[in-house]
Design a protein around this nucleic acid. Structure first.
Lengths: 225, 225
DNA sequence: TACTATTTTTGAACACGTTCAAACACATGC
DNA sequence: GCATGTGTTTGAACGTGTTCAAAAATAGTA
């Protein structure tokens, strides 16, 4: 493990390995890029990569983490002057897809390993909690003053539910082989609209039992043991 | 590849490998069971396993395929004298979970590799189409004379939608670490009830626009290019 | 039976992710 | 300048899934 107070040289090496990895991931895909290849491209021995990153997966996680950080301001910009829940929802998710567009294949690999919630790469894992919570906060934010009345009992759960919806879109997107991923665009547009409609409907007095049931379902999935 | 017209001896070897694999999968998990270990337990050389099965994954697929075949009559029995859509839906899925209960860990491994739709193990892949279609047929069957009026335009899509719902339950189940997987039981009970309610509601005249939108969403996901 | 063709079996070899003892580089104290 | 300790780098080695040329067993034919 590198020292907690890294020297410039040490940081430089870590960056070279990370850069080499990303380039090879892009060019050869996650499986095609080998640790030996990455190390070679970075000009170090195979083991050096493991001095800076505990695993191949960790390199991807790190890339994703840094990428997410950069993405924050892109989202900020994209959401500027966008009003209405439907527009905001679509814009927020579109901003993410646009951001990860050049590395869609890498993201696919990341989600593949991540279908096991105990795997560190999983979007549901303990290791990615920070990213996830920052992500959910965005959904919380687009809900305030969005022009749609949110039932009080639904309000605390809605951000996480919308995040879950977003994960579904992303899963669809990484596997969407239609040219330009137009199918995902269609799906996003229509499902964002539907979700807003459902939220609106959920406020109707007649819908209270159905809403209660939905909240119960959310509780079970969240695992309030 | 073994001959198309296999000798008894050849079949015996294949079965020994398959049995050894299943036993090791059970005992050591999918990753813990190695091809060398499987071959050794079966009393053959490492390469022999690859003469009968193209890959480690293929052994799991084969197990799943044979297991599914056996499961058919179990489902048949379970559904006997069960009436009402909600009961049938829950019973059908429960029968599957019960059947795979002793090999839940193996199934988890199978679904892990299978989150990529192009992977042969994926429940959405071309390779598993036969199993999938047989599966969907069950949902078609429990819909006839179930006591719930199904809107005509929804009817052809509903079996696949319910199958998709089932896949969600199974994903939840293989990762459910609550004792006895009680969380899954709760989720299944409540969501089966909700689904039937939604189908009932979808028939209401006022719900036509929402139903049309849902059908459009289904169309996009199915990928009618 | 003897010879040939085909099916089955073998185990070494490959590339992979990962580990680790050893070697190296460099700062600090004398 | 030298010694000591710590951070860094190396490359061989391990166990994995998988491949494959060669050997062995079997089937078919004259």
């Amino acid at each position: 493990m590198p020292r907690s107070n890294p020297t410039p040289k040490s940081e430089e090496t870590a960056r070279r390995i990370s850069d080499a990895a990303l380039e090879l991931f892009r060019k050869e895909g996650f499986d095609g890029a080998t640790m030996r290849g990455i190390a070679k491209k970075a000009g170090v021995a195979t083991g050096a990569a493991y001095y800076y990153y505990p695993s191949k997966d960790a390199i991807v996680t790190d890339f994703y983490r840094r990428s997410s950080a950069k993405m924050q301001e892109e989202i900020e910009e994209a959401l500027e002057n966008v009003s209405g829940l439907e527009n905001r929802l679509r814009t927020l998710i579109e901003a993410k897809l646009t951001h990860f567009s050049p590395t869609r294949g890498v993201l696919r690999a990341l989600l593949r390993s991540g279908s096991d919630p105990k795997h560190p790469l999983s979007p549901f894992s303990e290791e990615t909690r920070e990213i996830r919570e920052a992500d959910i906060a965005w959904f919380q934010r687009i809900l305030v003053d969005c022009g749609v009345r949110i039932p009080q009992d639904l309000e605390p759960e809605l951000p996480a539910v919308l995040w879950f919806f977003q994960m579904g879109i992303i899963y669809f997107w990484v596997n969407d082989e239609s040219p330009g991923q137009t199918r995902t665009s269609q799906l996003l547009a229509l499902s964002a609209k539907s979700i807003v409609t459902l939220i609106r409907l959920s406020g109707l007095p007649r819908m209270k039992p159905l809403r209660k049931t939905t909240l119960q379902l959310i509780g079970i999935v969240k695992g309030n043991k």
